[in-house]
Design a protein around this nucleic acid. Sequence first.
DNA 1: AACAACTCCAACCGCTATTCG
DNA 2: CCGAATAGCGGTTGGAGTTGT
Length: 264
Amino acid sequence: MGRTMCGRAGEPAVRKGPWTLEEDLVLVGYISQHGEGSWDNLARAAGLNRNGKSCRLRWLNYLRPGVRRGSITPAEDAVIRELHATLGNKWSKIAAHLPGRTDNEIKNYWRTRIQKRPAAPANTQQQPCRAPAAAPTTATAASEGASSSSSASASHGSSAAEDYYYWCMKPNNPDQQACYSHKTVAAAAAVGLGGWSASAALTRQDSSSTSTTAGDGCKLTGYSYPYYFELGSVADGVMMVDADNFWNVVDNFWGTLPFPDATF
DNA sequence: AACAACTCCAACCGCTATTCG
DNA sequence: CCGAATAGCGGTTGGAGTTGT
């Protein structure tokens, strides 16, 4: 990419462009210990040669616990269309109704999938990747079982947005397995990288394929899935090294993070 | 196989809003 | 109240990957 470095003579060049695994680990590790906020200071204190804005974006959109990867499901598509009709380009507000999705992701989805093309009939749309096609239908059971949020336990409304939100709040929702690889990354950072090296992980990342079929049969393309898949594989190595308490570390660390998403 | 066109999306930019001293 | 710093938002860019010829 052409956005790798910049800076004037005499100043340390601030790194731009795609984040490396090592940078991700540094950022996650630092935030896990010190929390987020004051992003410019955070970037300096963590030793990241990035500006604070870049760190904040990386954390919020990709590293933050609860961020979901993978295709937008038909249920989510319906929510986006519905909310955009009333809210317009208020991506952050729309994202608030889609747990785990970011404004950036929704914005990209809208521009590339919806804005460019007319709405396809529901029965011709791609099958969902992770969320069940009947997500709104299962939302009733979800709302009945939800206990971690007062809003989730309230009776839900009739809109696709509300149905989908309540479905997402369902305890032990398998859809939340999407968080797995992020958990492993965070946990790896929390345990001080266990017995593996980030550079080794980078080597493996570079050799990963660009198109991968997830365990549920959903084909995910591009950079994200292979990248995090590899992170998960590396973290499996941590399990072998520190198998006794690895998942305890994961769960404990996850529980300490101040994000409501972490309660899914 | 090689190339072009297209698609996707991570990351950047500029602006506004909010917070704080 | 004011100005600087910080946070957040929406628009845009450009490179990687995919698909078509």
